[in-house]
């Protein structure tokens, strides 16, 4: 069973001195769907980058299945941990299919060409995200939402055990918000670890099994979504008065002026 264990972890946020009282000690378990919530600039993206070993933490350790990620080879790590970025850097021209196929990169040796199977996985991922007809289109000719889906298709093709997703619902219309969250929930149900940052507390309430709340000025809290998503916890998080109602047994929060 995959697990990602954080011990006394503090991400290195630029221009902020690390506060040891804000350290994280928790474990992301297979089958769980985690939402990271917090105001702008609190370090959600930085934390995800730190979890993907793209950034060294200020303090603490991260272990993947009891092995510190700093000891794992980059390529081996990429076979197990995948990340989708919020800002897509597509500086260089490429087609959608090529982009998605890059997800297979960690699984191939340098001399290997992509096999039929890799191609099939890529096409399946495109299909899954309704992008089949865009396969040969240039990535930069796509709309924001389509690009977001292409990025998620690449992550699907990568098929990691740990999914780190930065704002999965960005740019997406309501239909695809649901489709994408459904895809992530499906991965969690297949015993994958899913960790995502979210700006929309209602999406978290609807889909996440667990949440991590990052406060700017006090220690973070984490645990089951059902018990943590309350007005007392969320109002100081966003420094915003909220009204709460219920819909289909899930809480729904609305800001009030």
């Amino acid at each position: 069973m995959t697990k990602l264990k954080l011990t006394q972890l503090l991400a290195a946020i630029p221009n902020k001195s690390p506060q040891p009282t804000h350290a994280l000690s928790l474990t992301f378990q297979a089958g769980q769907m985690w939402g990271i919530l917090g105001p702008n600039g609190v370090g959600k993206t930085t934390l995800l980058h730190t979890l993907a070993a793209l950034k060294a933490p200020a303090l603490g350790t991260i272990e993947l299945n009891d092995q510190p990620i700093t000891e794992l080879h980059r390529l081996r790590l990429a076979q197990q941990i995948g990340i989708m970025f919020q800002e897509h850097q597509d500086g260089f021209p490429a087609s959608v299919l090529e982009t998605v196929l890059l997800g297979r990169f960690p699984h191939l040796s340098p001399w290997e060409m992509e096999s039929e199977q890799d191609l099939a996985l890529a096409h399946a991922a495109l299909e899954r995200l309704d992008l089949a007809e865009f396969a040969q289109r240039a990535l930069n000719s796509l709309s924001g939402g389509e690009r977001q889906r292409a990025a998620l298709a690449a992550l699907t093709a990568q098929a990691p055990d740990v999914w780190l997703v930065d704002e999965p619902t960005n740019h997406l219309d309501l239909h695809y918000q649901v489709a994408v969250m459904g895809l992530l929930a499906e991965q969690a149900s297949m015993e994958k670890v899913v960790v995502m940052s979210l700006h929309d507390v209602n999406v978290a309430a609807q889909w996440c099994s667990h949440v991590l709340l990052l406060y700017p000025d006090r220690p973070p809290i984490w645990g089951k979504a059902a018990s943590l998503l309350t007005q007392q916890n969320l109002e100081p998080l966003y420094r915003q008065k909220l009204a709460m109602t219920e819909l289909n047994g899930k809480p729904l929060f609305v800001p009030i002026a």
């Binding site: 980059r74 081996r76 990340i83 970025f85 850097q89 500086g91 260089f92 890059l102 997800g103 960690p106």
Partner: peptide, 13 residues
């Protein structure tokens, strides 16, 4: 070519 961050995430040194 997709960017240094993306490349690092996919296991490139």
């Amino acid at each position: 070519a997709r960017g240094p961050l993306q490349a690092a995430a996919l296991g490139v040194n």
